[in-house]
Amino acid sequence: MLDPPTGTTGRPKITSYACVVGSDIYISTRGNGSYCLDTEMNTWLQLAKEMPLPFFSGKLEYVPELKLWFGLSAEPSRRLLAAADLISSDSQPQLIGDWNEFTPPEGWLEYQEPQLVNLGSARFCISRFFHIRSMDNDNEVIDSVVVFTGVEVMPVGHNGDGNGKVKLRMEKHKSRCCVSGSTMICSIF
């Protein structure tokens, strides 16, 4: 087992990570910077004190057709599907876009972080976990629901500022609900 990166204090919380083509894995931590793990050489390299994956929380997925990274945004109140170019930029990565695929009805409260699955060819399935609360009876939980939404991200041209960056749009395909009653579903994929 590899030792943790030197210079870290305690056990840093990993906030986002990405497997890069080849042997590298990028890891961002809260408060201890970001690192690259070279799995062939079994070595850690500290990349920056600032997080290079600032827009994301959890696992990132690379879509080679678009040459972009996709993941769920780090902002807790808006866990949206987001895209960024993490490799080609010499400076801090820039967010390319973010999209809201599902807006829950009133009384639905998310009880767990959403999960993202890359289905290939810029298609994703996003699962969201909700408790449905009674509006009449002291906000009692009356049901648990998981919503699965299929989305596809497509290029729609360039942004017109001459830098060659592509504009994207998200197309929502379908949403399906799985009602679990009083059983709380914690993980899908």
Rank of each mutant, 00 (worst) to 15 (best):
E106P: 10
E140C: 11
V156S: 11
D3Y: 15
H131E: 05
K49G: 13
S187H: 13
I14M: 13
L53D: 06
S127V: 09
R30G: 11
R30D: 08
S180W: 09
F70W: 06
V141C: 07
C178D: 15
T8R: 08
T9F: 05
Y17V: 09
P104F: 03
D98I: 06
R11G: 10
G97P: 04
D90F: 15
N32C: 08
K67E: 15
S57N: 12
L37C: 07
P54V: 05
C186N: 07
P93I: 05
K167D: 12
L119T: 01
C177S: 09
C177G: 09
D138W: 15
Y35N: 04
H173N: 09
T15P: 15
F70R: 01
V151T: 00
E40V: 08
T29E: 03
H173E: 09
G162T: 07
G162R: 01
I132M: 10
T8V: 04
V117E: 15
S144T: 06
C19S: 10
W108D: 14
L60I: 10
A122C: 14
G120C: 10
F102A: 02
I87M: 07
G160H: 01
H158L: 00
A82S: 14
E75Y: 15
Y26P: 06
R11A: 13
L2W: 02
T43Y: 02
P4Y: 00
D24Q: 11
D90G: 08
S89P: 00
V21R: 14
E140L: 13
A83L: 05
Q92R: 12
G164D: 05
N139L: 13
C177T: 09
L80P: 06
M51P: 07
F148G: 08
K67M: 14
W99I: 02
